[in-house]
């Protein structure tokens, strides 16, 4: 039996009295690259954090690879997982942040081996060899021993991607990976992501790079006010949006 990689049915998230996600229906299949677009404040980051269980959903159903996020299914009951168990499920999902969030006290290669060594208990030497290969893949072999503060934004983001890949994730989440970058540095990060997509990685990408979405993504989902309003192949969604909100949004950004 094969499951969707991500399956969200009526996912809700309430913080205080504010409904931030108001029932999200959304699926991602294995090997698919889907981009989430929409105005700022529409809940894109919150939804990504729910997929990774960095924050708990307050309603609906959300599963990754057939397993409900944060719970274990047994005898038709859902048992809540402990912090350590959730951490293990999270280890299989890579996440890349808008502001890179590289560990500031560690060099590039130390950032990359931190997860494999600390979480997966890999021997340091093996982890280092793998990390060196990953840094090579993102074009940064020469920067292995540099600290984040010595790297440009684009280089930091590529190290962050290598750090996520080191955990051998089955799913990668990107939260506006190029929004904090100077325009001339956007390309190098997008190139790495394209390469990943071509390699068959399942990816959910929150982005404002419409050209990237059009070229690389299998589908785009347009989010507005805590809901996925439209979802489909890029050309369809961009060229013939059905909702007024999507139409005015695309008129501004395309």
């Amino acid at each position: 039996m094969s499951f969707h990689m991500v399956e969200a049915v009526g996912v809700e998230k309430q913080i205080g009295h504010q409904m931030i996600l108001k029932g999200i229906d959304f699926t991602v299949d294995r090997g698919e690259v889907v981009s989430l677009i929409g105005p700022s404040g529409s809940g894109k980051s919150t939804f990504l954090r729910c997929i990774n269980h960095l924050t708990k959903i307050t309603g609906g159903y959300l599963a990754v690879d057939g397993e409900p996020v944060g719970y274990r299914r047994s005898d038709n009951k859902l048992y809540e997982l402990s912090d350590a168990e959730v951490a293990l499920t999270r280890a299989e999902i890579g996440m890349v942040f808008q502001r890179f969030n590289l560990f500031g006290h560690k060099t590039a290669i130390e950032n990359v081996i931190e997860g494999p060594v600390q979480v997966k208990r890999q021997p340091v030497e093996r982890a280092r060899a793998r990390a060196a290969a990953l840094l090579e893949r993102v074009g940064l072999s020469s920067k292995a021993d540099a600290y984040p503060s010595q790297l440009s934004g684009g280089q930091q983001q590529r190290v962050a991607i290598a750090r996520a890949l080191a955990m051998d994730p089955k799913l990668m989440l990107f939260d506006e990976p190029t929004s904090a970058l100077d325009p001339e540095l956007v390309g190098e990060v997008l190139a790495v992501m394209k390469d990943l997509a071509a390699d068959g990685m399942t990816m959910v990408v929150v982005t404002h790079e419409m050209a990237f979405a059009r070229e690389v993504c299998d589908r785009v989902a347009f989010m507005d006010d805590g809901r996925v309003v439209e979802c489909g192949p890029p050309n369809e969604v961009f060229n013939n949006p059905t909702s007024e909100r999507a139409r005015s949004f695309f008129a501004r950004v395309l």
């Binding site: 990774n52 960095l54 912090d83 350590a84 951490a87 293990l88 999270r90 280890a91 299989e92 999902i93 890579g94 996440m95 942040f97 502001r99 969030n101 590289l102 560990f103 500031g104 931190e114 997860g115 600390q118 979480v119 997966k120 962050a160 750090r163 996520a164 955990m167």
Partner: peptide, 14 residues
């Protein structure tokens, strides 16, 4: 920065 803890948890740390 809170992003540090978030990134650490995202690679599977408790």
């Amino acid at each position: 920065d809170t992003g540090q803890e978030e990134a650490a948890r995202a690679i599977g740390m408790t």
